[in-house]
Design a protein around this nucleic acid. Structure first.
Lengths: 219, 219
DNA sequence: AAATAAAATGGACTACAGTCCGTTTATTTG
DNA sequence: CAAATAAACGGACTGTAGTCCATTTTATTT
């Protein structure tokens, strides 16, 4: 368990190593072609109404080529979200650093993070929905990138809060981190938005009330 | 919003009305035949390794017949779970009545209910997994039966706890009820069990710590 | 520049979900 | 009991995900 007050998620979410073989020129060209085509189709018809065959055809490549780059639609969507996830991450880290400098509590930082995450989830819902449809979530923890770094951030902040005495040391941080993020999984999030018709503010407030309860409970 | 201290979920989960047309004899026979066949196949190969065509063939009926009774695999699994859900429900209601009689708090009852639900989820995980795979969850709130009555129970208890002054009246009960149930959705539950390797006790304890925090926080 | 090896390509192919509709069977009515 | 009607039936059919592999393209070596 990391006990550093400041969690440091991985930098670039897509390529981790340095010894990665360079991609052949035609392959690289096709990757960008596919991504651009996918964006165009998604914009026109909506993410859920576009299938892999459509993308392959529109991009003028075979299905084999498409699947060579992206194992499934979720994988492709993950690639489309990569940049924005990195930016969001950067912004959050900066904000948290600032708040620490301003003497704000870690639980306050957690509240801020969850608020921001609610908005991020709302904005990117269609892509996140596809990303989460796959078993991506299950594969060896490391592989659901979105959940992974969200989890790292939340558990890092909870750990820091524990060390700082803001919450009880009895709490199971690993569990609580998952549990706080659970209602932001797209199926539940969509259910709350579309069926229960909760506003984003209501969802944010609900999550905050949970963190507030944790902070207020006796150790 | 129901403010009764005791939530009363619907009795029989499958058939609600009284004016339901009687099923033709061959249809009824096929339904039981299909269900029995499905159970046998599920037992032999595991729920996830059996598809609808397999079931139809093993039962000696056409796919059309199968789909006429059950819209999809999740629907079929829901039918298989119907009895056990009703029993679980009955047991819980009885237990809660007893606890109320013994002067236990509603939040204590909530803890008990969540504990039991963790075990129920673990035992029936494969079926629940199929049930939740479908958009069943999304359709008009009423239609995800498992979630629906779990939600009714939890929100009912929270409401009662509020009235009894056990938790802050500021809390958004509808939100909290969803949020407490969210980590028991099968994708997250399986992730915690299989990847994080959490024990059932750890999961129960984690949920309890959340309810405890709610109960302990000032109003 | 030609030969070779490795990687990439396209589209046919398999597998499964779910639909459709012409035929059969149970039930009701006369 | 026979005819009429409505429900149920079976399996062919469509649509989509994802795999496979013979062929083509790129990069490397001589």
């Amino acid at each position: 368990m990391e006990s550093k007050p400041k969690p440091i998620p991985l930098g670039n979410l897509a390529e981790t190593g340095a010894d990665e073989k360079v991609e052949r020129r035609d392959a690289a060209a096709n990757r960008t072609l596919i991504l651009q085509t996918a964006v165009a189709l998604f914009d026109e018809h909506g993410v859920s109404d576009v299938n892999m065959a459509d993308i392959a055809q529109a991009a003028g490549v075979g299905k084999g080529t498409l699947y060579r780059r992206f194992n499934n639609k979720g994988d492709l969507c993950l690639a489309l979200l990569d940049t924005q996830m990195s930016e969001f991450q950067e912004t959050m880290l900066a904000q948290m650093r600032q708040m620490t400098a301003d003497g704000e509590t870690y639980m306050a930082q957690l509240g801020m993070f969850l608020d921001a995450l609610v908005h991020f989830t709302a904005v990117h819902q269609p892509l996140l929905c596809e990303i989460q449809r796959e078993g991506l979530f299950l594969l060896s923890a490391t592989l659901s990138l979105p959940h992974f770094w969200q989890y790292m951030t939340v558990s890092g902040l909870l750990q820091a809060a524990t060390t700082a005495g803001e919450i009880s040391p009895e709490l199971d941080i690993a569990y609580i981190a998952d549990a706080l993020l659970a209602p932001l999984k797209t199926d539940i999030f969509r259910f709350q938005r579309e069926v229960r018709e909760f506003s984003l503010e209501r969802i944010s407030a609900g999550l905050r009330s949970l963190t507030a309860a944790l902070a207020a409970a006796p150790s």
